[in-house]
């Protein structure tokens, strides 16, 4: 199978992703990978997923099939999909042939959506992954975000598509475990952190999501000078000016600002989908509880 897709509309943060480039922190490279991992996997099941997928944002995306036939699976936040102006069920899948145009526009909620295909995206694997790292300029097409006019080739054939388990949209507090520097904050401040209501600011990208600290929890945070440590996605770092930032998939590999907590893996996808202005409250859980949530043995 050989399929040629052409990008006819793309937002500035549209990128090729796969599950990520792990084990490269010591070389100065964070893993990247989908902002909503579960949605990426689910879109792959709908497509009968080959290697890689296209992550898009609320700016939407449009692709035209220049040559060939393929099956596309799509999910993520809430979006509206159309093939040649005919509305599609979201999430879902569609068969596309030469000349077909798939257009995605934003819907009611969410920041990120995914297109996966039944063939492999033809991109050069770097350190075992084709995921685009906006920070390191690696992966995807020439290490950059996708642009209008880009051509994506698919090769090989995927697996049988399967209908993924319905993904319920959870709400409620974002669960955290205390971070590597939690003990540098006073007990009083830690309690305030849990009581406070934060909001997702408009300053968010694949590297991190800055929060508005409406209750001024960290307004008086002293600028601690710390020895730098490796970062993992979900770490909540308090910048020198008191701004909390949740570090995401394209995070800096190491950081020297104090990290009070980390969003648990089971809640990181949901957090990534919160739009600017969304209220955020945090609730602590134990590491064991976080693992149980990840295994799906607790909700």
């Amino acid at each position: 199978m050989s399929v040629i897709l052409k990008l006819t509309r793309a937002g500035p943060l549209t990128s090729i992703q796969d599950l990520g480039r792990f084990g490269m922190l010591r070389h100065g490279i964070s893993a990247s990978g989908p902002m909503d991992r579960a949605a990426y996997v689910s879109a792959g099941q709908l497509a009968g997923g080959g290697q890689g997928g296209v992550e898009f944002t609320t700016a939407g995306v449009e692709i035209t099939i220049a040559y060939g036939r393929c099956r596309v699976g799509f999910t993520g936040g809430n979006f509206v999909g159309r093939v040649n102006d005919q509305a599609l069920a979201w999430p879902g899948a569609a068969e596309l042939g030469t000349g077909d145009r798939l257009a995605i526009t934003p819907g009611a909620w969410g920041n990120y959506g995914y297109l996966r295909f039944d063939g492999d995206i033809d991109a050069q694997s770097m350190m075992g992954s084709i995921a685009t790292s906006s920070r390191a300029g690696l992966g995807g097409l020439a290490g950059r975000a996708l642009q209008v006019g880009d051509v994506i080739e698919l090769s090989g054939s995927g697996a049988e598509p399967i209908v993924p388990a319905a993904r319920e949209r959870a709400d409620g507090p974002i669960r955290i475990i205390w971070g590597i520097h939690a003990d540098f904050f006073s007990q009083e401040l830690r309690l305030k952190f849990l009581d406070a209501s934060f909001a997702v600011s408009s300053r968010l990208d694949r590297m991190g999501v800055r929060l508005d600290d409406n209750d001024k929890v960290f307004a008086d945070a002293s600028n601690l000078s710390l020895v730098s440590d490796a970062i993992v996605p979900g770490d909540i770092q308090i910048l020198g000016d008191g701004t909390p930032i949740v570090l995401m998939r394209d995070h800096q590999p190491t950081g020297g600002y104090p990290r009070i907590a980390s969003v648990i893996t089971a809640d990181l996808d949901r957090f990534a989908q919160l739009r600017p202005g969304s209220a955020v409250a945090f609730r602590p859980v134990t590491v064991e509880h976080a693992h149980a949530l990840l295994r799906g043995s607790k909700t």
Binding site: F22, V227, D229, A230, V232, T254, A290, L294, R295
Partner: peptide, 22 residues
């Protein structure tokens, strides 16, 4: 353990909780 990262005064051990317990 899926990743070992030596830092200035610490070591990050990243593990897959589906494969190993703390």
């Amino acid at each position: 353990v899926v990743e070992i990262m030596p830092n200035l005064v610490s070591v990050l051990l990243r593990y897959d909780p589906l494969l190993a317990s703390p």
